[in-house]
Computed example of a mutant assay.
Amino acid sequence: MVKIAPSILSADFCNLEREIQRVQTADLLHVDVMDGAFVPNITLGLPVVRSIRKHTDMQLDLHLMIDKPVRYVAQFCEAGADLVSVHLESDHPQNIQKALDIMGEYGVKKAVALRPITSPEAILPYIDQLDMVLVMTVEPGFGGQPFIESQLKTITRVWEIIQAHNPSCDLEVDGGINPSTARRVVEAGANVLVVGSALYEAPDLSAAMAALRVTE
């Protein structure tokens, strides 16, 4: 079954509680954390995550687009994350492993994320312990970017690795997802779709979500 993870990066931040309520029927709430160092943008941080946690029971899917995430993983877990993704490009392998270990200590689901420049094989040292792999189909940092078609091959290869080593691991795709691209990434192996503007800018959000759910 395809899971939908609305990205609040595309929401109206002046009315964030309302915007979260609009997507309550989704499976996860995707929260992009950017630091202006790992990516050239700054979004929200710990205080906002804590506030979100107080106002929704949705599963919080935190995507840490930050440099050396091991420094902050414990704090984001304490703030209410249910799942945390750290980018493989953001630190040395030993610190990526340490970040995953911290998630395990807090009982938070573990994920790693890949930029378009990163080989699918980079997940191999971690795959046995992961709950999810996140494949970016845009360069991380800004919403509303066009879908990178060549990433379909990466999605397929990540799916093959998951099937060989950890079939219960989810495969999430983030970037340029709409009803057209959603169908292709699901065919390539994805089962979790991060959707921003295609939901929040749709004339009928409920209809847009329903269209995404029929991509199987």
Rank of each mutant, 00 (worst) to 15 (best):
D131E: 13
L205A: 00
T56R: 12
I123W: 13
I52S: 03
L124W: 12
S150A: 08
L64K: 06
N166R: 11
I20R: 05
W159S: 11
L193C: 07
L9D: 08
V185M: 01
L28W: 15
P140K: 02
A5H: 11
V186E: 09
D82C: 03
T25D: 15
E105S: 08
S206T: 10
M58C: 06
A74K: 14
D131C: 02
G196K: 03
K153L: 13
I123K: 04
L88E: 08
V84F: 09
V133E: 12
E139M: 09
D82N: 15
D67P: 10
R213P: 15
R213N: 09
F147M: 06
N41Q: 09
A211V: 00
N166K: 07
L64Y: 12
N166P: 15
I4S: 04
R213C: 04
E149I: 01
R183W: 13
R184E: 15
T215K: 08
L64M: 15
T25V: 03
F147W: 13
Q75D: 15
L46S: 03
N95T: 00
N41R: 09
E139A: 00
A113I: 02
L29G: 04
S119I: 00
E201R: 15
R50F: 09
Q151C: 12
L171N: 06
V2G: 04
S119Q: 14
I127N: 09
S150W: 04
D61L: 05
D170A: 04
L60F: 11
V48W: 14
V112G: 06
F13I: 05
P203K: 06
I96R: 07
P93K: 04
C169F: 11
N166H: 14
I102G: 05
E89H: 09
S119H: 14
L114S: 05
Y126Q: 07
I177L: 08
A190K: 10
G196N: 09
L88G: 02
D32Y: 09
N95S: 02
P179R: 04
D61M: 08
Q59F: 15
I8T: 01
H92A: 05
Q97F: 10
Q151T: 07
G143D: 10
M209H: 08
K109N: 11
A11S: 14
N95M: 13
F142T: 00
Q129K: 11
P140F: 08
V2W: 14
I52R: 03
P179T: 00
L212V: 01
L60R: 07
A164Y: 10
L9F: 12
H92D: 12
A164L: 12
L64I: 02
